[in-house]
Amino acid sequence: MRYLAIFILSMIFWLLITFRFTIPNITAGAVASAITAAIFGRYYFHNVYKFLQPRRWYWFTVYLVTFIWACIMANFDVAYRVLHPAMPIRPGIVKITTTLRSEFARTLLANSITMTPGTITVDIIGDEIFVHWIYIRSDDPARYTKMVTGRFEEYIKKFAE
């Protein structure tokens, strides 16, 4: 089942980037996707049935809209800090704790933290994520955890866990 999921994903990817629906092209794509699925199939997608739940797709859309908005805000934030003559920065590495369990959800959370305003993920050790922050706004761990992860953690928990 896992192998089938990764085969279908590779096939969709191939058809999108070539976009020619002739017999030789589709055959070549099928062979390449089969090889990919045979090699990498056991690493990904431990529960394939999650793809079939519409509730998860709804939360994924909400997450995507929030994420794109945060990205655009992050750019204006960086532009302000870079163009300001005095460069208002107060950098540091803070430690926040996550409640997410699966590898895929943690990767998504780390990527979201990297693209949101002023933060970049340095490392994940156990349950703790280390985040480099360009302007530390608070010294209280509970408050800055909320500021860094924002609403991403609950959205990711709803669609990827």
């Binding site: 590495i93 803070v94 430690k95 693209m115 970049i120 340095v122 280390f130 480099h132």
Partner: peptide
Amino acid sequence: TVAAHALVRGAYHFGTKLDKRTVKDDYREA
């Protein structure tokens, strides 16, 4: 994003110093 994570982690383990305006470093004891 993944390349940025790898680079920043590699730079820390390589021993690159943080800037002198840095106020906090939780990663050092970890």
